[in-house]
Amino acid sequence: MSVLIRIPTPLRPLTNGQNEVQETGGSVQEILDKLTVRYPGIGERLLDEKGDVRRFINIYVNEEDIRFRDGVQTALKEGDELSIIPAIAGGSR
């Protein structure tokens, strides 16, 4: 399945500045594995030591948070869009 992945601005230095990248995979896990290989450094930003998605980063398939679906096992279909959304806290200073 070809999937569009939206990269948030803090991670774009790791994807050569690209805000969207394309990968193929049948599940979120497969996409994360490919991103980790293709863009060194991105794996550590997204996943903890156990390989789980960090709890301040949300991954959405289209509009839905994978935490409320099947986590990284969430299946993907052709044309799905995967968004990586980190918590950000800036505002005042």
């Binding site: 601005t9 803090p10 959304i85 918590a87 950000i88 806290a89 800036g90 505002g91």
Partner: peptide, 10 residues
């Protein structure tokens, strides 16, 4: 709630 960083906001 609102937050901003670099070029992105929520």
């Amino acid at each position: 709630s609102g937050s901003i960083l670099r070029f992105e906001g929520q």
